[in-house]
Structure formats: C-alpha cells, structure tokens
Nucleic acid binder design. Structure first.
Lengths: 204, 204
DNA sequence: TGCGTCGTCTAGACAGTGTCTACTTTGGCG
DNA sequence: CGCCAAAGTAGACACTGTCTAGACGACGCA
C-alpha cells in the first residue's frame, strides 16, 4: 500500500504537495504550513516530499514561480487595453485581483524570509519576466504621452508601487482581520485603480 | 548570579528582549528569530521572557506598536509641510525612510502570520492612529483642492497604496537580495515620491 | 532469466522550537 | 522577622526541518 488517492503516479506527488501547501496556507495561514502536515495531507511519509523538493524553501520557490507567471500574464493582458486611462485601471485591478485570488502565492512571492529568489533561478526568472511585462506597460504609457511627462522609469516605479501597495494593503494591511473584508477590499482596489488612472491620464 | 549585564534591573529585561529581537531580525532575517536565541542573547534562561510577554506573538505585537507609533509621528510631521506638492513628496519619503530605517519593525507591522492585531489592542490602537494621521494628510490635500478633484477617501487610499507599495518593494521586492541596494532603494523611493507629488498636484 | 542501478518511498534519529508545569530566588512591606 | 508576589531557572512535551539508512519496484542489459 504505497500511497493514498492523493498521488497515484510518480510526479503526481510533486503537484499534490504544492496544492496541499497552498490549500493549507489559505485555510490556516502561512504560519501553519509545515512539511509534515503537507505530507500527511498528501498521505505520504514525512520524508516523501524531499524526493521532489530539496527543502522547504524549494516548495515556496515553486509556488512563487507559479505566482510570478500568473502576474506576468495578467500584466500583459492589461497592456493590450487600448486607451491609456483604461490601461492603467486594468493593470491595477489585475494586480489586486491576483493578490486576492491567490493570497498564498502572492504573500510567498514577496517574503524573502520564505524564499530567497537568488537561490532559485526558475522563480527569479519568472519574477524578472513579470517586471519586464510591467516595464512594457510603462513604455506604452510613455508612448501615449501620458502621466504628466514623467520618465518611463518614474511611470514604472510609481505604477508598480501603487499596484503593489494596494494589493499588499488589501491582504495584510488594516483591512486584514478587521473585517475579512471582501467587498471593502474590492472597493479599495477599484478606488486606487480609478484614481491612478485619472491621475496618470494627463497629457505630458 | 541572576543575570548578566544585559538586564540589571527588573523591567530592563522587557526592553532588552525587544532590542535583541529587532537586532537579530535585522542581522539574520525574520526566520532567524526565536525566543530561545533572544533569551540567550539577553543572558537569561529560555523561560525568562515569558514573565514579560505572554507568548511569541506578544513580542511581535510590542515591536509593531513601536513601529506604528513611529509611522504616525512621521506622517504628522509630513502633514505640516506647507505646499501641497511638497507635502505629498514628504509623506512618501517619510514612509519609505521608516521602512528602510527600521526594516524589522516595518515587516512585522504588516505580517498577519506573526501578529494578529485583533488580539493586541495596544498595537491595534497605534495602527489606527497611524491611519488617522494619514487621513488627516489626505484631508489637507483635499482642502488644498489638489489631486484632480478625487474624493478624500480616494486620495487617502491612493497615497497610502503608493507609500506602502514603494516601501514594501524597497524592502521585499525585486530590489531585495538583488543588490542589497541602498542607493538604488533610496532613488526608487525618491522617484515614487516625486512622481506622486507631480501627479497629485494638479488642481481639482 | 538474473543482476545492478535508479527513482521513490518509509523509518528513525537529531537538534532546535514554543510553551506548559513546577521549582527556586529575591526584594520590598507590614 | 515573616510573607508574598514578581522574576528567574529547569525540565518536559509535542512539533518542526533535515540528516542518514534502508526497503521496494521498475528498468536496461548480460
């Protein structure tokens, strides 16, 4: 009786570990994640995950990889929006939406105490790709002669800060715990998206 | 021989524990913090801190309290700046500066897996006070008929997001680890501050 | 067929963690 | 002096990540 239903083929266990990890984090918080609980959840011994991940950090790195890939994709989608103003709005909303839909991924991506991207080139490459998507978006805004004539770098940094701040605050800011506030959080994100769109859609 | 030099009077140990915790986090990262290491650092037994803090989370709560108090103070300082544009700039710069000067405090303030503010009313009150300071700043901008006529709530949310995003990215974003980048980080923060100031200083 | 090797998994051990309980010590006050 | 509460010590427990050793099956090759 080698395994339970959770992993019926080799290579299944790898994904099962990732899925169980994300599920556990989303239901009980980051602090609750332990390799042993995940292994138990997946119906294997506490050592089985080590055949697919070098260590605990490698699991986080794999999750961060998934997260950055999703962020890059969403950013590129937003970049395709025609009007500059709507593009800014779409970018901020997408960033916040990703954080809300995959909170475990999002937190892990930006917690260096869990993953040091330097040690995981896959995840690092995905992060750089997400950044590249954001730069392309900033360039498109610059090309549209928008944002009061700010430099491309300034547009990128500022837009990124607004996106990231809104997403972080929705997850871990005053809103967190205070109300389990889905509706409030969505409203917050939309407000920041609309405001940034209006502030940035001034000709330069 | 009850204690070492670290704590020579009662009540000293409390602050010694907090200081040792912050120092340990700043030198080895959040993951390195353990009560037992802190106790050893302070020259007491592994149980001594429990006479000043109910548990590990209470230590984090005390640090978060310090951090929010500093943030509220800095925000109120920035609010005193005369011109609206310079006020925005000062607020963003102050927020980022606080994050860089006290990285351990800043991270703990926004990591619910370490402190649930709901369980620590001191820290929660300090957080609400910091938010109140930010709202006052937003109101002052609204009074100056700035930020393209956005509502006060929109101004507050957007400014907060930009501040928080810039600070978070400087600490835990792509810049982190990539270069240990003090100069780059400062430049990043200044760029966001200048950009937000320009974007927001449009009459409404 | 038999043999060896490799990938996958199990089991046991170790140091380190937060926290519970039980104790000793110490300083101040009636 | 005697007492007590505050402050500190020591030991134990369950739990963690990770090291080491082994078991088991599938596979290629003689």
């Amino acid at each position: 009786m080698p395994r339970t239903a959770a992993a019926s083929k080799p290579e299944d266990l790898r994904q099962a570990v990732l899925d169980a990890s994300v599920k556990l984090i989303e239901s009980e918080g980051l602090a609750a994640l332990s390799l042993r609980r995940v292994a138990k959840e997946a119906g294997v011994s506490h050592q089985a995950p080590y055949h697919h991940f070098a260590n605990r950090e490698a699991i986080f790195a794999a999750i961060a990889h998934e997260g950055f890939a999703g962020l890059a994709h969403a950013t590129r989608e937003a970049t395709r929006v025609k009007s500059a103003r709507a593009r800014v709005r779409a970018a901020v909303r997408a960033y916040v939406r990703i954080a809300m839909e995959r909170p475990a991924h999002f937190r892990i991506m930006f917690r260096p105490e869990l993953v040091n991207l330097m040690n995981h080139s896959d995840a690092k490459d995905a992060a750089h790709d997400a950044y590249a998507a954001l730069v392309a978006l900033g360039q498109s805004l610059k090309d549209d002669r928008v944002a009061a004539g700010l430099s491309t770098q300034a547009i990128v940094d500022t837009l990124w800060s607004a996106c990231h701040g809104a997403a972080s605050l929705v997850l871990d800011g005053l809103y967190s715990g205070a109300k389990e506030a889905d509706p409030d959080a969505v409203a917050f994100g939309d407000r920041v998206a609309d405001s940034m769109a209006r502030l940035m859609s001034i000709d330069g």
